[in-house]
Simulated scan of single mutants.
Amino acid sequence: MYSTTFNTALGEFALIWTDQGIRRVFLPGNEAIALEHRLAQLGAQRSEPPRVISAVLDRIEDYAEGEVVDFADVPLDLDGVPAFHRRCYDILLTISRGATTTYGDMARQLGDVGLSRAVGQAMGANPIPLIIPCHRVLAARGGAGGFSAPGGTATKRVMLALEGVSLGTPPGQMQFAF
């Protein structure tokens, strides 16, 4: 496994890849020292990215600047990811920029609305956020739901806003028009 970190308009990202494709994406929000420690714990060696990985970095940088990008052709390495999670991620890969779904809708697509919590667990365990767009999964009635990346739902809201999706005022906050 290999790794690199790089700065974007949103902050510092990190990628881990193998010869099969992207294995992990770390969204901005981690302190540099904590991020380096995490990469080392996973056994990823610092490396200069090959052309295919550099192209992914470029797209992530473009995304962070608000440009429309498509990650559909990015090779992924989901070795070790449970089969149920892979089924969830396959559904997510069909949700395009500017569109959202809910945990319940995904559970219905998987055959049982009772799987909503399991879908949420799969989203929380997503090793490749942004490329596998778990930020596009909302709670019932359009609420943000959870987000396990640094910054939590605030990060989710920023990502969705870059894609033209507005969730309105976060719960517990009021807008004042002075």
Rank of each mutant, 00 (worst) to 15 (best):
M1T: 13
Y2A: 06
Y2T: 04
F6N: 05
F6C: 03
A9L: 12
L10V: 08
G11W: 00
F13V: 01
F13W: 00
F13Y: 15
W17D: 07
D19T: 15
Q20A: 15
R23V: 00
F26D: 09
F26T: 01
G29H: 12
E31A: 12
E31I: 04
A32Q: 13
E36T: 05
Q41T: 11
Q41G: 01
L42A: 14
Q45K: 14
Q45T: 11
E48R: 05
P49K: 07
P50Y: 01
S54C: 04
A55L: 13
D58H: 12
R59A: 03
I60M: 11
G66K: 08
G66I: 09
G66R: 06
E67N: 10
E67D: 11
V69H: 09
D73E: 15
V81G: 00
V81C: 04
P82C: 00
P82D: 03
R86V: 10
L93Q: 13
I95C: 05
I95M: 05
R97K: 10
G98Q: 13
G98F: 10
T101G: 03
T101C: 04
T102K: 02
T102V: 03
Y103A: 11
G104F: 10
M106G: 05
M106L: 15
L110G: 01
G111Y: 02
D112P: 01
L115F: 07
S116Y: 07
S116A: 14
A118L: 14
G120R: 09
Q121A: 12
A125N: 06
A125V: 00
P127H: 04
I128L: 06
P129D: 07
I132E: 02
H135R: 04
R141E: 12
G145S: 07
G146S: 14
S148M: 10
A149W: 02
G152S: 11
R157H: 11
R157I: 10
R157W: 09
V158Q: 15
V158A: 13
E163V: 06
E163C: 10
L167V: 06
L167C: 08
G172S: 03
Q173N: 07
Q173D: 05
Q173S: 13
M174S: 10
Q175C: 06
Q175D: 08
F176S: 08
A177G: 04
A177R: 12
F178N: 08
